[in-house]
């Protein structure tokens, strides 16, 4: 089958936010590497896979995105090194892909989506209109968009309207 113009799928994942304590970023990275075999990503990147991934979320901050509950495990491992909070219910996650995915996202996001500027593996913290948003470029042309749960319905409506001409 031909690749569709645009495909939109809602995802339900388990999320947790991690903020390193003052001066503990190195220790946090070592703990994560030892526990999950993943090097914590630097600014604008994510690392890991579909089962568990860590996305940069600001200086000294990361988001964990997993296919199983993760916050309690992380909080235990990172006690004294980082503040961990469960965010599994806080975000509305959408995965978008398709031939016209960048044309669709260009109507909503004010950032450069060219793969040279934002390759797979990249993370962008930005906004869509008045809606703060975190984008992960998962694999070539496949993007994960995360917005606050309360804005999910509104955001989905706008995404659908932006994609409609490419359906």
């Amino acid at each position: 089958m031909d690749e569709p113009g645009i495909a939109i799928v809602t995802r339900d994942r388990f999320l947790a936010s991690i903020e390193a304590r003052r001066g503990q970023a190195g220790a946090v990275a070592a703990t994560i590497a030892a526990a999950y075999g993943i090097d914590l990503p630097s600014a604008g990147r994510w690392a890991g896979g579909a089962d568990i991934a860590f996305a940069w979320a600001g200086p000294g901050e990361w988001s964990a995105i997993a296919d199983r509950p993760i916050a309690r495990d992380l909080a235990g491992r990172l006690a004294g090194q980082a503040a961990v909070t469960d965010q599994s219910d806080g975000w509305h996650l959408t995965e978008v892909s398709g031939l016209r995915v960048r044309d669709t996202l260009a109507k909503m996001l004010p950032i450069d989506l060219d793969p040279a500027a934002l390759p797979p593996g990249a993370v962008a913290l930005t906004r869509a209109g008045h809606i703060d948003l975190r984008l992960r470029h998962l694999s070539a042309g496949v993007y994960e968009l995360a917005v606050f749960r309360s804005l999910g319905a509104d955001f989905a409506g706008w995404l659908e309207a932006s994609a409609a001409e490419f359906r």
């Binding site: 936010s17 903020e19 390193a20 304590r21 003052r22 980082a82 503040a83 909070t85 469960d86 965010q87 599994s88 219910d89 806080g90 975000w91 606050f148 749960r149 309360s150």
Partner: peptide, 15 residues
């Protein structure tokens, strides 16, 4: 900046 304080919004996490 010398204080050890971490902050996260959990407005959306909890009903």
């Amino acid at each position: 900046p010398d204080l050890d304080v971490q902050m996260t919004s959990v407005t959306e996490q909890w009903a």
